[in-house]
Design a binder for these strands. Sequence first.
DNA 1: CAATGATATCAATTTATGTTTATATATTAT
DNA 2: ATAATATATAAACATAAATTGATATCATTG
Lengths: 125, 125
Amino acid sequence: MQELLNIFKALSDETRLRILKLLELGELCVCDITAALDIIQPKVSFHLSALKGAGLLRDRRQGRWTHYRLDDSDLFRRMLVLSVMERVPEEAVAADRKRLRAFMEGKEATGKVVGMPANKRCCGR
Amino acid sequence: MQELLNIFKALSDETRLRILKLLELGELCVCDITAALDIIQPKVSFHLSALKGAGLLRDRRQGRWTHYRLDDSDLFRRMLVLSVMERVPEEAVAADRKRLRAFMEGKEATGKVVGMPANKRCCGR
DNA sequence: CAATGATATCAATTTATGTTTATATATTAT
DNA sequence: ATAATATATAAACATAAATTGATATCATTG
């Protein structure tokens, strides 16, 4: 029962739906999400941990970065998330997408990508 | 967005899932639910109101009784609730069902049913 | 119309969740 | 090693949600 409840608790927060919406686009590291949502990093970690605890996300450690992506191993969660994503209004995530795009382009332009030397840092935060 | 969040908030509480499970069996009045869950009545009203606010329940006033039933007017909510009900473990609701059955039988046996005179009361609480 | 019963609402309290600032941990670069 | 960076965790605080006991409301009965 608790497991089921955790799924819904995870889905009943706006920040977390925004994160899921971003991850629809593909795997992202914490600093990508932080930049896209324009909120402080511990807040992002907090919500990522809730989503992961509910079995909605998987993470992958690569060097100093942790990459998160949707966990599609469970059919129920997958269909649930899918149907929810469809219902998140576009205007609630448009700004996030825009900031993400800008941030990603910045990374590419300056060579600040995963695996790059630390002086060419990822976040600058 | 808020509307969507309300649905998940409504579903992220054990008492409320138990109520939904009871209402799968059909329409019930507040005192039925109170008896079945074996909790105090204001608590039941509180959760019913949350479920109703999320568009998951409808109510129908008949005399002094308020009857609640699943609201199946919206397809998304309907499928969501349906798929959730399936995942609520049986042992989490078995006792509720049992108490409900006993309570209903008590009502029938003593003529304490909806529409009956007040001396043959519904709840005895 | 007084009394009773079913339900809703309120105020007070407790508990749970989310937010923030500061700091710890771990990894990589110099 | 030392410094820098990405992320996680902890502690303190703020906010929201749930629980309870008391009471209001409203329909029904006597």
